[in-house]
Amino acid sequence: MMKRFMPAILALSFALPASALAAGDQAHPESRNWSWNGIFGTYDRAQLQRGLEIFTGQCINCHGLKFIHFRDLIQIGLSEDQAEALAEQFEVAGDPDEWGDPTTRPAKLFDRFPDPYRNEEEARALNNGAVPPDLSLMAKARPDGSNYIASLLSDAEYNEGNPTDDGLYHNAYFPGGLIAMAPPLYEGLGVNADGSDASIDEMSDDIAAFLTWTAEPRLEDRKGMGLKVILFLLVLTGLLYVSKRKIWANV
């Protein structure tokens, strides 16, 4: 064990030149005008559902979403029947049968999105050595996550889809500039609210919005409560200040 960690530990130790730690060059994500920005921000349910559509149509083939239960999708405006119908398209492990053999069954509302691979080894073997990360928390696990996801997916050079000899793709927003994932979005994959084909930019936004929701599903509760709490505190603090002035008036 110790031997395995030693190089990392040494690299971390400040005694060594720390330049080895510096991450590769990476472009700053472009800022988008998200519906949840600002004090009154909320998610756009239609956008989240479009994102879900693209996610289940494409991303799910390689990426997990393990912190999301199918029941959670009711929060973004799916009816219980719709969420149930979506769940049934996935097979999950069931109880052992009477002979003790493993079984599978269609997923139900209380199940989470199943991982696309049986284990990390399979994921690695099928993806040229790179393990596709679980996306549940991606929007919070990268600096400026929502913009990062949208910028990465819509990068123009990336979407030309010319791999290097190693099978990697140029992407200015990915740390190091080379990403193993082939450009996943193409015209015709997703549709806009009016039914027209969505552009890659539009799909990138919808996916980023959906993944922001999966990372922070309580955002609307939080912002809604914050407004009430702060208004209350402003009044309370005002009263406390006036009381303080009055009590101290003769000191």
Binding site: R222, K223, G226, I230, L233, T237, L240, K244, V251
Partner: peptide
Amino acid sequence: HPYYTIKDAFGVGVFLIVFAAFLFY
């Protein structure tokens, strides 16, 4: 009390506003 209890209480109010701004936003 009451001089510094009220002064501290006012400070708590200001503190909580700043805290809440970070906490919620």
